Amino acid sequence: MLPSSTSLRTNPGLLRREKWRGRIGLCLVASLSVLAGMTDAIGFMATGDFVSFMSGNTTRLAVAISDADLALSLHLVLLVATFIAGNALGIVVSRFGGRRALPLLLCIATLLCAAAAWPFEQQLPALLAAIIAMGMLNAAVEEVNGLPVGLTYVTGALSRFGRGLGRWMLGERRNGWRVQLVPWSGMFAGAVLGAVLEQHLGLAALFVSGLLSALLGLLSLKIPHRWQLGYMPR
Rank of each mutant, 00 (worst) to 15 (best):
A62V: 14
L61F: 12
L78M: 09
S66M: 13
H75S: 03
R16N: 09
L15F: 15
A30P: 01
R16S: 12
N11V: 10
S33V: 01
M45E: 08
S55H: 11
R21E: 08
F50N: 00
L32A: 01
A71T: 14
G22D: 00
G48E: 10
R23M: 09
I42T: 06
L14I: 07
A36N: 01
K19E: 03
L8A: 07
L72T: 00
R17L: 13
D49W: 08
A81Y: 02
I42V: 13
A46S: 15
L76G: 04
G13D: 04
D69L: 05
L74C: 07
N57G: 09
S55E: 08
G13M: 10
P12C: 02
V51P: 03
K19Y: 13
S31Y: 02
D67C: 11
G43W: 02
A62D: 04
L8T: 06
N11S: 11
I24E: 00
F53L: 00
I65Y: 07
T58Q: 06
L32P: 05
S4D: 08
S73T: 14
S33K: 00
G25W: 01
I24D: 04
N57S: 13
R9V: 13
V29L: 00
N11Y: 12
V80Y: 02
L74H: 09
R21G: 12
S5A: 15
A62M: 12
L78S: 06
D69G: 11
L79R: 02
L61W: 08
A30L: 13
A71F: 07
R9A: 15
L74E: 03
R21N: 09
L8Y: 08
G13S: 14
D40P: 02
S73D: 01
T10V: 11
G25L: 03
F53E: 01
R21P: 02
T10G: 00
L32E: 05
L70W: 14
T58E: 05
R21V: 06
